[in-house]
Design a binder for these strands. Structure first.
Lengths: 221, 221
DNA sequence: TTTTACATTTTTGAATGCAAAATTATCGAT
DNA sequence: ATCGATAATTTTGCATTCAAAAATGTAAAA
């Protein structure tokens, strides 16, 4: 197994929440599971620690990183900056075909909302945000965005949702699509920031902080 | 030696250009020099590869990463986004004392310009940009900014400079300080972006691309 | 002389081994 | 029984070792 694959597998395990934030990372167990020895596993853990997904405690092993409210606030703030930049650049560079693809994804997402399928809604939602960032045509930005959003993924996509907020988020997404179709960079940038600011408030209000025994589950209302 | 220290030492070696971009990283030699074995060294190299400073080639060892023109363009673009965000946040949160410190650093920098001391000028310049980012009060942003600027440090601070451009950059910095003192977030954000856009154009025009035998040296004119 | 096949050496990537540190268990004193 | 000290165990971090891959060198054939 290649180094990057090991990193990816462990990252997935962490993002899935299979190892709860704050919990010790069972080295031996992961070695058995991935069929590798401790050396490549530990290399991967150091990389994930640099990404902020793992916390290394000298002589005490590694734990799945835990986010405080402040962390969530900060990361959302950075995410706003990155998406705002992506929005502006995307409007300069996006092709008609890419816009059409995003419009289609948007339509799907709206359908998932109508049908009340939150999981599929979130999946589509994420795809749209990622498509906009990709359309900016800046791989460095894509990589950074991926790393920041990974850290707040659980906060962003595993948070309770009221029907009101959900409907409002869909409205915002209509404005996002609209700005993109008009290639209104400043407008798109502005909407994306507001959209994320609202999401952040929801998350913080829901009391996201990953303290012990905060068992997040995907649910509506 | 602690893991983080190893990473830091090697990062410094790379940023100093002691290992030329594109050159193979001499594992054995670094082990001897840092008095560590290959295991911790390789852990550090993987981390630096994730940061973009090192390129890992499977079964062929690691090299100091080389930047293409496109990389420089992309990274400056991201840097613009981050500094713009930092500027806005800083204006909301910066204290009077912090502004005074930046004003003092600015005065120093202007003096270095008058005296024609490019190295000291760049040093002060960097300190100001970093102080603004720090004043945003967002550690996640600081970390990301550090990682992006590290990758373009050599491009940003080791590039020829004409007297005209230098004088213009100083003028821009006056506007930056002014916006900060007025706590004009939108204005500061705008100026920072323009400032970086200009810097990027200089760098690209100077033909920065780290191809073989591009021996960058700090010089004026 | 140039090229190609093969052997040798070096380097890489990962498993194992080992000492130091931390954790857990055990036992005696209160 | 509870607390604290000490011993046993586990875990960590790193050096070393080993197999596989790549690079290098050598020699024969074109």
């Amino acid at each position: 197994m290649l180094h990057e694959e090991v990193v990816g597998r462990i990252r997935a395990i962490l993002l899935d929440g299979e190892i709860t934030p704050g919990a010790r990372i069972p080295e031996r167990e992961l070695c058995d599971r991935l069929q590798i020895s401790r050396t490549p596993l530990r290399e991967a853990l150091k990389v994930l620690a640099a990404e902020g997904l793992v916390q290394l405690l000298p002589h005490r092993g590694s734990r799945a990183a835990k986010l405080t409210d402040k962390d969530v606030r900060d990361l959302f703030e950075v995410c706003q900056g990155l998406e705002a930049l992506a929005g502006e650049l995307a409007c300069e560079r996006i092709t008609d075909a890419e816009i059409d693809a995003i419009a289609a994804a948007h339509a799907d997402m709206v359908r998932h909302h109508r049908e009340g399928d939150l999981i599929q809604y979130y999946r589509g939602n994420r795809a749209i945000h990622e498509a906009i960032v990709t359309a900016a045509g800046n791989p460095a930005l894509v990589a950074l965005y991926a790393s920041v959003t990974a850290r707040i993924r659980r906060a962003r996509y595993v948070t309770p949702m009221t029907p009101q907020r959900w409907a409002f988020a869909v409205k915002e997404h209509e404005a996002i699509l609209n700005a993109l179709q008009r290639r209104d960079g400043a407008g798109l940038s502005h909407i994306l920031r507001a959209h994320l600011r609202h999401k952040r408030e929801e998350v913080l209000q829901a009391g996201f902080a990953e303290t012990e025994g905060n068992d997040l589950a995907l649910r509506i209302a």
